[in-house]
Computed example of a mutant assay.
Amino acid sequence: MQAADLSAAAEVHQQAFIRQKQSLQWLESSLNAFPRFLSFVAEEHAGVVGYILWAQKSGFRDQAVMELDQVAVFPAEQGRGIARCLIYESLPLVKQQLCRQGSTLKHIIVNTRADNHAQRLYRSALGAEVVATIADLYSADEVLMLSRDMDGKA
């Protein structure tokens, strides 16, 4: 993601996360937090249709724990594999950035609503499994998913 992508990505955020506010400020602050946050977009026909945010957790470490902080696709474009593509295409870039800072990827964590069908995506794309449920965290129950031992995996 580049600064020029922010307005379009903010539109994706507004449509995908209707309970959240200040989309432009949210994404701009994530983009500006590089290398703690790594931000990528999916484009089709020269337009942004989705984005993904990865966050390094608990400091810069030799073995990094990354959080798939947020993945979003325009609602009209969902179901076409764009989110999966964002995960698969950005993860090698995340690993390259970690390598540049002398780190490897240890684990990936994801949290999402307990009723979010995207859990299937996180299971199949990352091998993530639910390890905890937190009642009434944001707008409903939230699950914490963990993908262990990612070093060496695609």
Score class of each variant (00 low, 15 high):
I82E: 13
R100C: 02
H107E: 04
P92G: 11
Q63H: 15
F60L: 09
L86M: 08
K106Q: 11
W54C: 12
R113H: 05
I108A: 00
E89V: 06
F60N: 09
L91R: 04
D115A: 05
L93P: 11
I87C: 01
L91A: 00
A83K: 10
Q96T: 01
W54R: 12
R100N: 05
D69A: 15
R120C: 02
K95P: 07
I109C: 10
K106R: 11
V94T: 09
V71S: 09
V65E: 14
L53K: 12
N111L: 05
R80I: 08
Y51H: 14
I108D: 00
N116D: 00
T104H: 09
A118Q: 04
N116Q: 00
R113V: 00
A72T: 14
N116R: 05
V73N: 10
D62N: 14
K95R: 08
L98Y: 06
T104F: 01
G102T: 04
A72S: 15
L98F: 01
N111K: 07
H107G: 05
N111W: 04
Q63F: 10
W54H: 09
K57T: 14
Q63A: 08
T104Y: 07
L68Y: 14
D62V: 12
Q78S: 11
F60A: 03
A64F: 02
I108W: 03
K95L: 01
L91E: 05
N111T: 13
V110M: 01
V71K: 07
V94M: 11
V110N: 03
W54I: 11
A64E: 13
V110A: 00
R80Q: 15
R113E: 02
E89I: 09
Q56K: 15
S103D: 06
M66G: 11
Q78K: 06
T112A: 01
A76F: 13
F60Y: 15
